[in-house]
Simulated scan of single mutants.
Amino acid sequence: MSTSTVPFVGLTGGLAAGKSTALAALERLGARTLSTDEVVHELYAGEELRDLVVARWGSGVAPGGVVDRAAIAKHAFADPAERQWLESQVWPRVGAAVVAFRQDADAADPRPPAAVVETPLLFEAGMQDAYDATIAVVAPEDVRRARAEERGHHGVDERNSRHLSQEEKSARATYTVVNDGSVDDLERRLAAVLDELQP
């Protein structure tokens, strides 16, 4: 890792393991942070992507001019070719946002300890090589189940989805951070990772 650039880190983890909580903790610790989910939300809120999906699937996917992500999912996941089309529109735009984010972090003064991008499907999409290091946030099954139920999601079974198990993510990641206690506990563990990342 060269000393001239800020460590570029991919953050991922199991469903309901606490990725967003970890990202917020890293920001409090001084890291520059970006959520790819938030980038996608912003893209859908803009006119360019909205107009593309309306042209593809009709005005029903954006009632009143506001994109309905559930309606988009129905089209995209019904047919692999449609999903491929959607990803070909979304991912290059997300990629451009990530590149701009990294350039801003490298130019920042004072220099942040890391530039961290939360990427839920980091390993599934084969994006790990784009980063200097990766962090997997994991949590015990009962903790994840309780968090998922609090959010109104039923279960966190990853076997039938596009997600790897959190054990697999942990095995592939540079660092694994267990989120089984308080936010302060999580922050301390992440601070130790940031220390290790320094050149």
Rank of each mutant, 00 (worst) to 15 (best):
G30W: 00
A97F: 02
A114I: 05
L15A: 15
L23Y: 02
L34W: 04
E150F: 14
V54E: 03
A17K: 03
R93G: 09
A171P: 01
K19D: 03
V90N: 02
S59C: 00
A108Q: 11
A115E: 08
V183C: 01
I135A: 08
R50V: 10
L52E: 13
A173I: 07
L164V: 00
E150A: 15
A62N: 05
Q103Y: 00
E42V: 09
R28G: 10
A100M: 02
G30V: 01
V98C: 10
T21N: 04
G60A: 13
L186Q: 04
D129F: 11
R93S: 09
V143S: 08
H41S: 12
Q128P: 02
A148M: 11
G60Q: 11
R32N: 08
H153W: 14
D79R: 12
Q84F: 07
H163R: 15
K19I: 11
A115V: 10
E167D: 14
R69N: 09
P112F: 02
V66T: 13
S165D: 07
Q84V: 00
P120R: 07
Y44H: 14
G152M: 10
L52F: 00
L190S: 06
T174H: 04
L186S: 04
A136G: 08
A81Y: 03
I72T: 00
H153Y: 14
D129Q: 14
A22Y: 06
R151E: 10
A25K: 01
H41K: 15
Y175I: 02
W57A: 06
E38N: 13
A114Y: 02
L194Q: 00
A31S: 11
F8G: 08
A71I: 07
S88D: 12
A148D: 07
S88T: 06
G60P: 02
R83K: 14
V177E: 08
A130G: 15
G14A: 11
D195N: 01
D129T: 13
D142Q: 15
R50Q: 02
R151W: 13
T174W: 01
A24V: 11
R159M: 05
D132L: 08
A81N: 09
K169V: 05
V66H: 13
L122H: 06
W91P: 03
L15F: 14
R151S: 13
F123L: 03
T5W: 02
Y44P: 00
V54N: 00
L86A: 05
K169R: 15
T119F: 12
A16I: 13
T3N: 13
L121P: 07
G126M: 05
T36N: 03
A173G: 10
R32T: 09
S165P: 01
P120E: 05
G13P: 05
T5D: 13
E87Y: 09
W91T: 08
A97S: 14
D184A: 15
L43Q: 01
T5P: 00
D106S: 01
L29M: 05
V137Y: 06
V177L: 12
A148F: 09
G152W: 10
E168T: 13
I135V: 15
